[in-house]
């Protein structure tokens, strides 16, 4: 059982290191997805399939796709076509591929009944009961945290747009 955990952990560590070491943001994001997937496998092994599913759906799925889109949009320019071409060589996708293949092999092994968690499984129902039972206030606080992030993002994003429209030149230090 432990060996599965260590494999997933090693994948997570390598992938996360590559996120930091990669210079190209899109390549780094590829590794970040692998890192999140390996976390999902770890959650699964620990007996929390619901958390694992959420990790895949929310982080690796929705948020990462958003990131990739934003980064690709930011990179638009005359160089983008060259970059597009430079993304294709095998050495770019081979690393993430290898790491996710390891994860996939692990997942298949576990799904075929290769090893139980060793702990009890936490069902979605139990998660819901915990969230709206003892952790009620914590859940509400988490929603306030999201609200704060949302308002900040709304305000700062908007403020920049206006500033840029009013000032045609690059923003300079306003020292007289």
């Amino acid at each position: 059982m432990n060996i599965l955990f260590y494999m997933a952990s090693i994948v997570a560590v390598i992938a996360t290191l590559m996120v930091i070491l990669e210079f190209n943001p899109v390549h780094a994001l590829l590794y970040l997805i692998v890192s999140l997937l390996s976390l999902a496998v770890i959650f699964f092994l620990l007996g929390a399939p619901f958390a694992a599913a959420l990790e895949v759906i929310i982080y690796a799925g929705a948020i990462m796709v958003l990131f990739v889109f934003v980064v690709m949009m930011l990179n638009l320019g005359p160089r983008s076509a060259d970059e597009e071409r430079s993304w294709h060589p095998a050495r770019v996708w081979f690393g993430p591929f290898l790491l996710s293949a390891a994860l996939l092999a692990e997942l298949l092994f576990v799904l075929r009944g290769g090893g139980g968690a060793g702990f009890g499984e936490v069902s979605p129902e139990e998660v819901g009961i915990a969230l709206f039972g003892p952790y009620l206030l914590a859940t509400e606080l988490a929603s306030m945290l999201l609200l704060s992030g949302l308002i900040g993002a709304y305000h700062l994003g908007r403020g920049y747009g206006e500033a840029r429209r009013h000032e045609p030149g690059p923003v300079e230090e306003s020292t007289p």
């Binding site: 914590a138 606080l141 306030m144 945290l145 993002a153 500033a163 306003s174």
Partner: peptide, 26 residues
């Protein structure tokens, strides 16, 4: 749980508050 949530709520609000006017690069 409450410790971390309080800590984060404080920090996340302060990030935006610090940049709030975004009038200068400062």
């Amino acid at each position: 749980a409450t410790f971390f949530l309080g800590f984060e709520l404080l920090s996340v609000s302060l990030y935006s508050l610090t940049a709030f006017p975004s009038m200068t690069q400062g």
